[in-house]
Design a protein around this nucleic acid. Sequence first.
DNA 1: TGTCAAATTAATGTCAGACAATTAAACTGC
DNA 2: GCAGTTTAATTGTCTGACATTAATTTGACA
Lengths: 250, 250
Amino acid sequence: MKIDSANPADLSAQIAAAIRDAIVEGRLIVDERLPSEAELSEQFAVSRPTVREALKRLAAQSLIRTQRGATGGAFVNRISFEEAYAQQITTSTLLLSMNAVSFETACEARFCLERACAALSAQRRTADHLATMRAEIHRQGQPGLTDEAFCASDVALHRALVDGAGNPVLSYQLAGAVEAMQPLMNMITFTARDRARIVELHTAITDALEAVDADAVTNALAALELETQALAQSVFMARSNKSERAAPAS
Amino acid sequence: MKIDSANPADLSAQIAAAIRDAIVEGRLIVDERLPSEAELSEQFAVSRPTVREALKRLAAQSLIRTQRGATGGAFVNRISFEEAYAQQITTSTLLLSMNAVSFETACEARFCLERACAALSAQRRTADHLATMRAEIHRQGQPGLTDEAFCASDVALHRALVDGAGNPVLSYQLAGAVEAMQPLMNMITFTARDRARIVELHTAITDALEAVDADAVTNALAALELETQALAQSVFMARSNKSERAAPAS
DNA sequence: TGTCAAATTAATGTCAGACAATTAAACTGC
DNA sequence: GCAGTTTAATTGTCTGACATTAATTTGACA
């Protein structure tokens, strides 16, 4: 891993890539301590600030953690599911918001993945998962709930559904799909009138899950997707009409 | 975003978080130029190296890109699907390898997600997708193919299946699930004898996809999962027997 | 006057050396 | 033997400088 090309361009990126490869390929194992910054700067024949920039790049990806003090240094980090969740949510959110992904496309992907969990969750969900979902449904029925709180509750319910499958890898993968949608969903949940219908569908999903009826869960999720897509379409339609009235000449 | 607490701990992380929040919340938009390093160091009242470390953290997450020269600087980056793929694959791979995720769990998650794409792909796959899959199947039948090449071909085939759904968000989500499994799959593909069975199942999947038969695709994928799980179990069993023979006393 | 080349400039990339802060281990006194 | 102190190693930060890059401006020449 001590290889470094002679061209003096983006040294810190090169060093970061070299160390990252060493970690990914298993040449550096979890909790192993990297050489100190001074030693690394010697090995790579660069200055300490350059090494530090490389280490910060790795720290940003949770590949290493640093510790100060006598026995401190940089250690290969065991990336936790929580850290991985957070990274995936950030990336997914930006990907959706920056690339003009249509609501339709994002929504389709999200429900497609969520339906995939339905069968497993129907088999394995515990009473805890059901209780969480019931509690969120109750909260969603409260009048005076802000749109943000309603949306957060919505995410929590779906999270419980996915977690019910009892597969942490699945939960991780779905985290991005469900949570990254939240900003997009926020746009279409501003009418209290529609909340009743959504609560109804959430109840249907939870009932089916409690009855260990995978097909019913799938159907209820499909209905929710249909409802969401229709709602979004009406919102976008109304918005476009409004902008046409505001600027009829164009 | 110019807020910065007075405690002098992890200044670069704080600054990175402040800028990241500004980007995620849309206060900084795509292709907008950030202040120069000198200006940022003034605003945050820290030195330039500290600002640089913060910027490197963001660059590692593809949130910004930097450009040298007179009109250079740091720009908010429109994260591409390719960059997002790469990040997700790295994170997923490390998550699996570092957290003692069982093959069974990872395999279940992967096929669960892939089956979710089957119905969409059956409807939308183009002739190109089918051709790619046929080509990979043909390659997989070649004798003398290395295990690594077989595995890469396997990933390419499943990639084509997922891309057939015509939903880039879905393709992105699945990239992590499929590609991160590759190192784990490598462990169980070392006998040429099993390749024939896998090619057979791949052919069944492709045939079903060509026939626009979503149920058949789902069933074939389920069969492939069963085969894979059984194969993995036999490999692990053989391995544990071997180690027992090697150290019978323990 | 128009065009191409050279100087200017502004920005990032890198370096060197220094000091501050933190933490574990070694040491010392009782 | 134990508690408190010192020491050493390491990261975190700062200052100042120079190198490199690329767009812009300037200037010379046809």
